[in-house]
Design a protein around this nucleic acid. Structure first.
Lengths: 180, 180
DNA sequence: CAAAGCATGTAAGCAGTTACATGATTGT
DNA sequence: ACAATCATGTAACTGCTTACATGCTTTG
């Protein structure tokens, strides 16, 4: 369960170059990868070696030559096998909760400041999400089903951030009540 | 932001052996580490080299000798510095959502089966959470503030799983409506 | 004239994983 | 007899990260 599957997913939509894939990952709100070249170019080389993708080199006049990767039959089979593979629980690393868990060494004011910074971080993120959502729809639209799924995934992400913000704000108030 | 901080956190509570720490991580619902020996023993050695913990070797009659680790002043300073460090957004790897995003190659029945397995996984996890919560309270209780925080963290985790389950169930129904 | 875009890649490192190795003791 | 508990550690690997390297073109 790695970026390899997601790359195959994008290529099942249409052929892409490594550079384009890199941007897709970097711009995406729903995928958790940073989209660094190391991983993308390396994985593409691996996929090609495994016969899951084919390469077409396109010379260009003004820009460096590019390698356009297309998914093969074997690639589609690998993708489908992964899709049928048992689902896995989400992995969450909530660093802030871990900080909180050991925050006994902080004063009330220091703890409150930590909450304030966290809440600002979250609301910034939420604003950015809404902004992007209002702007352009990323993602394919091969069917009504796929469009619905992509929409609900984005909504789910946003709702999770909002729930986290509400949780933090609620706990902060409770803590203020304790000390005040 | 790694297991090193969490180990210092546990040791700020009271001294522990590596073996005990390993169990604390493995049993914990709120921490995301597996608690494998490699990481724990290795980190303890590193912490000792850095002067953040002290070691007391205790010989035992029937069991192997154990090393009891205690936090030092330097360790407490490191812990506090980390606590004051800027909070970071939660990192979420929702593998199921990524599968869904590329599920176009699946039939309606295959997709529905994937949802069913995911929902069962989630509800099993939720049951396990409730069960453990009903049983023993893990965690320290040095103050009312700390107890409240630990309680709310556990509740937040549970609520997140429940929200994820509701999200999946809702989307599944919508998808059934599309095809039916 | 500097920054951003196009396009490919490499190097070094971090945090985490499973599996292995050892060996006595206690419970089923 | 077999598994679990106590207790420490090592080896090999995965997936991902930031930073670096090259070089031409277009935009501000």
């Amino acid at each position: 369960m790695s970026i390899r599957n997601a790359i195959l997913g994008f290529l099942s939509w249409k052929p892409f170059t490594g550079y384009e894939l890199k941007k897709l990952f970097a711009d995406s709100l729903s995928f958790h990868w940073s989209g660094n070249s190391n991983q993308i170019y390396g994985t593409l080389i691996q996929l090609h070696k495994d016969g899951a993708v084919s390469i077409e080199v396109q010379q260009q006049e003004k820009y460096p030559a590019k390698k356009v990767y297309a998914i093969t039959e074997a690639g589609r089979e690998e993708l489908k096998a992964w899709l049928l593979d048992g689902p896995v629980l989400p992995e969450v690393k909530n660093h802030f909760q871990i900080q909180l868990a050991w925050a006994e060494a902080l004063s009330g004011a220091e703890l409150d400041a930590l909450f304030e910074r966290y809440e600002r971080l979250l609301s910034d993120q939420i604003l950015m999400y809404r902004d992007r959502a209002a702007r352009g729809r990323e993602g394919p639209s091969r069917s009504a089903r796929e469009m619905l799924i992509w929409m609900r995934i984005e909504e789910g992400r946003l709702a999770a951030y909002e729930a986290e913000l509400a949780w933090a704000a609620g706990l902060r108030k409770e803590l203020a009540g304790l000390s005040g």
